[in-house]
Amino acid sequence: MLYIMLFPKMIAGPIVRFHEIAEQLTDRAAFETVDHKLAGLFRFVLGLAKKVLIANVLGEQADHIFGMVLHGEPDHIFGTEPALVTAPLAWLGAVCYTFQIYFDFSGYSDMAIGLGRMIGFQFPENFNNPYISRSITEFWQRWHITLGRWMRDYLYIPLGGNRVSTGRLYANLWTVFILSGFWHGAAWNFIAWGAFHGLFLVLDRLFLLRLSKRLGPLSILPTFLITVVGWVLFRAESLTDALRYVQHMFTGPLFTDRPFPYYTTRFWLTLGLAAVFSFAAAIPRIERRELAILAHSQLRGREAVALGIASSILLVLSVMYIVGSNFNPFIYFRF
């Protein structure tokens, strides 16, 4: 009953299975320390900052651009029809949503993990810098990790996993991801999103993994672009809207006689920070350092002070944004 009612895992966050915390329910000593509570507070505030300072700022503009492309919503500068929206602007909207969904989902996961640590539980990690992936296969090893494990254990392995013929293996991969799309929403665009990722998982097995090894770190870029296109399928309200938006990304005008919409310095700064935080871990040393900070269980004096100061600053900034903004979507809860 305690496992079922455990608040940090109920609404949003990692998919926590009973066996992963069974011992923690009875042995409370290991995680009931001041260091764990302070690290948990920092993790919670970090997730809150990801959500409100990055995801919300970019999500507001993503909604605006998607509306312009698909519905020709009035704009104070454009005045506007969908045809007047350029392909670069459509790409900007897709990239904004790409960062929004990552910082929203990972932010809620960080908050759940942080709350868990504050009350003495160690939850599994759920996101590990997915946008530095060099293939779609690697992306799904880094994105919503606990969901990937759930699909593996309860869908992929019961279907036979990889201990089957090559054709059956490809069918299994595609089936799992089509069902994953359907699980996220009962609409054709979600099924298309699952089939899209399933297709690239099959192509990875056929030849893309060999190609990505040859490209090395450069393979991060095509993988990211594939992911961006996939998120358009996920974001659109219907498959028709998704295909229309993707078409505009690739065939829309590069320039128009109207100026590119002006966005505030805050927006561009947030977009830049999102890119830095998403791709900095492509440098192995930075990734190792980041994982070490998040996994810390015993803090030295300087580390505790630094975490305390960072948590205070991020908490103040986040509360200021929440108080001053009425745009606060809970997109993780929808899926």
Rank of each mutant, 00 (worst) to 15 (best):
R285Q: 14
R205A: 14
A62I: 00
G185D: 06
F196Y: 15
R258H: 14
N172W: 10
W183L: 12
H248V: 05
S133F: 04
G185A: 10
R17A: 04
L215A: 15
R266C: 12
S106V: 02
L89D: 05
L291M: 14
Y321F: 11
D27G: 08
F177Q: 05
S312H: 04
L46N: 10
V45G: 05
L233W: 03
G301E: 11
W174Y: 14
A83D: 12
P14I: 09
I21N: 02
L225D: 03
R149C: 00
V57I: 15
S325N: 13
L159V: 12
R285T: 14
A186N: 00
A281Q: 08
V176I: 03
I293C: 07
G72V: 11
F234A: 03
F196E: 00
A186K: 04
M118N: 06
G116M: 01
L201S: 08
I145E: 06
A295H: 13
L294E: 09
L92C: 05
E138Q: 15
Q247W: 15
F99T: 01
V229Q: 02
T80S: 14
F335T: 07
V202S: 02
P253I: 09
F330N: 15
L201K: 02
I178H: 09
L243A: 15
M68F: 03
A295Q: 14
R152T: 05
Y170W: 11
H296I: 02
V316I: 15
T227S: 10
A295M: 06
R210N: 14
F330L: 15
F78G: 11
F78A: 07
V69A: 07
D110A: 11
T270C: 04
A22R: 14
A55L: 05
M118T: 09
I54C: 01
D104W: 09
V69W: 00
E81K: 06
L2D: 09
H76Q: 14
F42N: 04
E73W: 11
L147P: 01
A192W: 07
S109H: 12
V164I: 15
F250K: 06
V34F: 13
G272C: 14
A87M: 11
A30P: 02
F330K: 15
F267T: 10
L208M: 06
Y263K: 02
D110K: 12
T223A: 12
P8R: 01
G148W: 10
T223G: 14
G160R: 02
S109F: 08
L291G: 02
R334W: 05
G308L: 08
G59V: 07
K213T: 10
P222R: 00
A242V: 01
V85Q: 01
D153K: 13
G72P: 10
P261G: 04
G161I: 07
Q247F: 12
M68D: 04
W150R: 11
W174V: 12
F105C: 05
F123H: 01
P74L: 12
R149I: 06
L294W: 05
R285S: 15
A87F: 04
F207H: 11
V52D: 00
Y108M: 06
E60A: 13
A236R: 02
L2N: 05
H64M: 01
A171D: 09
W150N: 05
T270V: 14
F78S: 08
